[in-house]
Amino acid sequence: MAENAVQRQTILSLRDTIARIENCSLPGIVRTAKAADAAGFRRGREGTLHRKVLPLGIAPLDDVLKGGLPLEGMMEIRNAETRDAGAAAGFVAALAVLYQQERKEKGHLAPVLWISQALASREAGQLYAPGLKSYGLDPERFLFVSARTVKDALWITETALSVPVFAAVVLEIRGNPACLALSESRRLHVRAGAGGVPLLLFRQAGEEEASSAFFRFQIKPAPAGERPLPDGSVLCGSIDHPAFHLLVEKSRAYAAADIFLEWNAHDRRFYPLDERRSAALQANGQPENPVDPLSASAGRSRRAQPLGRLLAFARAS
């Protein structure tokens, strides 16, 4: 009987530890057990579980984010192919604008730091200052670092996270380099949490990889809307605010479906795409001109994927 109780206690405390590591609210069973027998648990932890968030005002996304964008810690945003880097960079820049805006409302003018591996900038294009300005970012408060290697980029990121001046730090990496594995991402996540700085890990043309980030999103391009006319109709064939197709790849909460968003640079906020359009986009599954994805440099010991598509298996007999 007594042995049974000890085992149960051990399991509960392990669950508690796991929940604390995951920075999440306690699972129901632990909470009930705690309510029944408070003496067995350490107190004073619940306060730290409360995260600071920045709500986006979009219900499905806020649900996935559990309230809003985290104001400290790491988030990962990736895109599958280099040609989608524009869309992903747009989403990352939009988040940076939101973070900067939030700091501005609190009365601090804080710069955004964008650290980019030189290879990533070369492949997908350099950031363009007038473009950033028209996108809503304050170009006077924008610092850009081009790091030659991933290691240099990581060093700069870690240094930046220890300085509490940046509204957000963006780390742009190409592919899945071996020197940014789980332990390094954990380290960055902890640093970002301790420094109180949001870190956006932007993985360009990278594969899905385990990391310590709160969330991981994959960004795909989505067709933009058409410019509205004063009489309520739209200007046919015009291109309005940029739209994004968001796939939630890692989150604490369940994501029901893909999320479609539109960034309004003038209002500096996201709007959900109206339902008719997102339903149409959701249905439109296979692209018309598919490309065989060639993953960018990966530091894993993995064989190269054969090119082309497998049409038929060899006869077994």
């Binding site: 880097a85 960079a89 350099q126 363009y128 007038p130 473009g131 300005k133 028209s134």
Partner: peptide, 10 residues
Amino acid sequence: FPENRPLRIF
């Protein structure tokens, strides 16, 4: 400044 400038440029 002109609106509609790209975010990334080659």
